[in-house]
């Protein structure tokens, strides 16, 4: 598969974005307001997400840690990159 790199300045579609963030640390925010921080393993067209080293934050407080986590896509508000 010869993926052409997305040209800078042109539209970056959701699919391009998702390709670019696999394996990177991300924040996944749910509609309920709960945040998950971890490394994005993969995701599918429903925005179902598999994450590694996942930390669950409720009101900014760490509540839980999961080795691997599957998040059902319908709960997802956004997926954000983390500024390095």
């Amino acid at each position: 598969m010869a993926d052409a790199p997305p040209v800078q300045g042109l539209a970056k579609t959701p699919a391009d974005f998702l390709k670019s963030i696999k394996g990177k640390p991300v924040i996944v925010k749910l509609n309920s307001g709960v945040d998950y921080r971890g490394v994005l393993a993969c995701l599918d067209g429903y925005m179902n997400i598999a994450m590694e080293q996942t930390e669950e934050y409720v009101n900014g407080q760490l509540k839980n840690k999961y080795g691997d986590a599957f998040i059902r896509g319908n709960n997802v508000l956004y997926i954000s990159t983390i500024k390095q």
Binding site: L18, I27, I79
Partner: peptide
């Protein structure tokens, strides 16, 4: 403040 996000269109 956030860097780059994919916003779910659902809501």
């Amino acid at each position: 403040k956030l860097d780059t996000i994919l916003l779910n269109g659902n809501n």
